[in-house]
């Protein structure tokens, strides 16, 4: 079933790390502290597949997304785009490859140039293709209809559109150059639920039509579950659990994933009342001063001395986990508290 075992990955992230120097000493020669934003992250995405990256704020998921795009240069590791290592290319060598790798941002207002019409914004993106004026105009019209907006938005400015419409333009810009991979950085979290659903559907239909691979970054697990084929759960810069979406949700093995799942409030009062939840103690530790050993141990209900002494490595299996005391893999242990959600009021 899993595509990525059969076909070569279109995006292959290998041992990616990013360290930000924070502050500096008096002479400005040595940074005072090092912030390890992303640590040794590896994953692969096959053509037409969606890889979801979930985690709470400060877990490094957005930094990771920007490192993939080379908007930030990673400190270590490689990003292979359709087999080509793009980590060591210079800006000029990178430019033609940008066509294959696009991004959609969270805030659809700040991600569109406020002084340009939608037509110009899309034309800016299309410059890579060097189209003639007529083809370009046709392409812009096509893109606008692809994202299901009326043709007359072309001559409007971003502030004249609603949040959902703006985000559709962000998506149109990303698909305009026929990319192989799109990094979606919290693409729907700024939008209201009723608008969000339309965008998620749009993203799925575009993926089916255009066979694009998505890296879908979000903090909302229900959204990630809905769109993703495979998921990586990040905590403090590392992937702590990864696997097929269904495996990960039906049988979460890492205590952090379990806590995340049990923390989602369900839109189902009866289920909510019956629910036993694992509420995590405390806050996310500072990434400037991460705990020794397993970074989750300070909040983990299962932590034992070994966890402080030694960092658990991410297994090399389909449903992998980085934990010394994980729940077993397998499909038997499905009796978890993921209560059935309501039947959309169709007379339940």
């Amino acid at each position: 079933m899993s595509l990525h075992n059969l076909t070569p990955p279109v995006l292959d992230v290998r041992n990616l790390s990013k360290v930000f120097p924070i502050g500096s000493n008096l002479l400005g020669t040595k940074p005072a502290q090092m912030l390890q934003a992303v640590s040794d992250v590896s994953f692969r995405v096959a053509q037409g597949e969606t890889f979801g990256l979930v985690g709470e704020s400060g877990c490094g998921k957005s930094t990771l997304g920007r490192c993939i795009l080379r908007l930030i240069d990673p400190t270590q590791g490689e990003v292979l785009l359709a087999g080509t290592d793009i980590t060591h290319l210079n800006a000029a060598e990178m430019r033609p490859l940008r066509q294959d790798l696009q991004i959609v941002f969270q805030d659809p207002m700040s991600s569109l140039h406020p002084g340009m019409t939608i037509r110009r914004i899309l034309a800016e993106g299309l410059r890579l293709l060097k189209l003639d004026a007529q083809t370009e105009a046709a392409r812009i019209a096509e893109l606008i209809s692809l994202v299901q907006l009326p043709a007359d938005v072309a001559d409007r400015y971003p502030h004249e559109l609603s949040g959902g419409q703006r985000q559709r333009i962000g998506i149109a810009r990303a698909i305009s150059v026929n990319p192989k991979v799109i990094v979606l950085d919290e693409p729907v979290s700024a939008l209201d639920v009723s608008i969000q659903a339309g965008l998620l559907n749009l993203l799925r239909s575009l993926q089916e039509r255009l066979n694009i691979a998505y890296v879908f970054i979000a903090h909302d697990l229900s959204v990630v579950r809905y769109v993703s084929d495979r998921i990586g759960v990040m905590y403090l810069g590392r992937i702590v659990e990864t696997g097929r979406a269904s495996d990960l949700f039906d049988n979460p093995r890492h205590p952090y994933t379990q806590a995340l799942l049990s923390a989602i409030p369900l839109a189902d009062p009866r289920a909510e009342r019956k629910r036993a939840r694992t509420v995590l103690e405390g806050d996310l530790p500072s990434p400037l001063n991460p705990p020794s050993g397993c970074s989750f141990r300070t909040r983990c209900p299962r932590a034992r001395p070994l966890c402080a002494a030694e960092r658990p490595l991410l297994e090399d299996t389909a449903h992998a986990v980085a934990c010394h005391f994980p729940d077993p893999a397998g499909t038997e242990a499905t009796a978890r508290a993921t209560p059935s959600t309501l039947q959309t009021g169709e007379g339940a």
Binding site: R98, I103, G115, L128
Partner: peptide, 26 residues
């Protein structure tokens, strides 16, 4: 640091163009 600038870089705009077209007008 605005996202539309990052979007322009991701869209393959060179440094000069990013500065002149995407930053200075604002």
């Amino acid at each position: 640091t605005r996202e539309h600038v990052e979007a322009a870089i991701a869209g393959g705009a060179g440094r000069g163009r990013v500065l002149v077209v995407h930053i200075l007008p604002l």
